[in-house]
Amino acid sequence: MKLDLETVEHVALLARLGLTDEEKATLQDQLSSVLDHISVLEEVDTDAIPPTAQVIELQNILREDVAGAALPVEAVLKNAPRTEDDFIKVNAVLDQS
């Protein structure tokens, strides 16, 4: 089954990936071929099988809800492209109209 272009564009938007038309066409072919390979799993009867949530014996790792040591603000902000005072600066996310 070949993925249609609309699906590729929809998934790219969900993933926040800007793709060129050439990339979209390539991905249409490559993802279809990988999905074909994956479809072999349909032959496995898994009706009575629980999904794996994790592979080791640990469960419910809890800790006291107390503040611990944290990195200094300047260390956390030093890699941010744009900052102002103690904040990371971003473009407006809400419509201002």
């Binding site: 898994t46 099988i49 999904p51």
Partner: peptide, 8 residues
């Protein structure tokens, strides 16, 4: 589905 096969 993959996580079920993973169990197997």
């Amino acid at each position: 589905k993959a996580q079920k096969v993973r169990t197997l």
